[in-house]
């Protein structure tokens, strides 16, 4: 004998009305249509492209719509080495993106400067833009990128989107200095 449990929306009981929390609905919508802005600056961008291909298929998570215009994108994936000369461009594109927006630092270079400990490389993109998810690896495999994006989805789920419409989040500074 099988038993069924009714939960969620039941059209017989509720007709065409759904009762939920605004936060839940908004976050549900946002979570499943994160359009990435591919900030591909170096070798990591190749793995980012692989994640977009059919083998790894980022479109399973509603993220296949890579937008090369910051106006139409929600999540900047910084994939690659950010030089100081490029840093201003990254920040400007971040500023041009409409709220709500998220940033994923993909790979060692974007997270910390990676192996480029030198005068020309920005030591972590979190110095100029607020980062939500850091992905380790040099380069991270596409699975790692997908895992990072799923964690971003989890993070979006817990956000209070009705209360904080505009989020002015701070950037970090270098904390890891030689003692």
């Amino acid at each position: 004998m099988t038993t069924t449990t009714e939960y969620g929306y039941n059209s017989k009981v509720e007709g065409e009305v759904i009762v939920s929390k605004a936060d839940a609905v908004i976050n549900w919508v946002r979570r499943h249509s994160v359009w990435p802005m591919p900030m591909g600056l170096a070798c990591c961008a190749i793995e980012l492209m692989a994640a977009g291909g059919s083998r790894f298929d980022i479109s399973r998570f509603g993220m296949e719509v890579m937008r090369f215009s910051p106006r139409q994108s929600d999540c900047m994936i910084v994939a690659g080495t950010v030089t100081y000369k490029m840093a201003q461009v990254v920040r400007r594109i971040y500023d041009q993106m409409a709220e709500p927006k998220w940033v994923v630092a993909m790979g060692a270079c974007a997270s910390t400067g990676g192996m480029y400990r030198s005068y020309a490389t920005l030591q972590g993109v979190d110095r100029i833009v607020p980062v939500d998810v850091y992905i380790s690896g040099c380069p991270p495999r596409p699975e790692a990128l997908l895992d990072g994006m799923m964690r971003l989805q989890d993070k979006i789920k817990t956000e209070s989107s009705t209360r904080t419409l505009l989020r002015n989040r701070p950037v970090r500074d270098l904390t890891f200095q030689k003692k």
Partner: peptide, 15 residues
């Protein structure tokens, strides 16, 4: 613009 937005400078990379 970057200077104003972040209030940061180009720092020596931690070696």
């Amino acid at each position: 613009g970057l200077r104003e937005a972040t209030g940061k400078t180009v720092l020596p990379a931690p070696m």
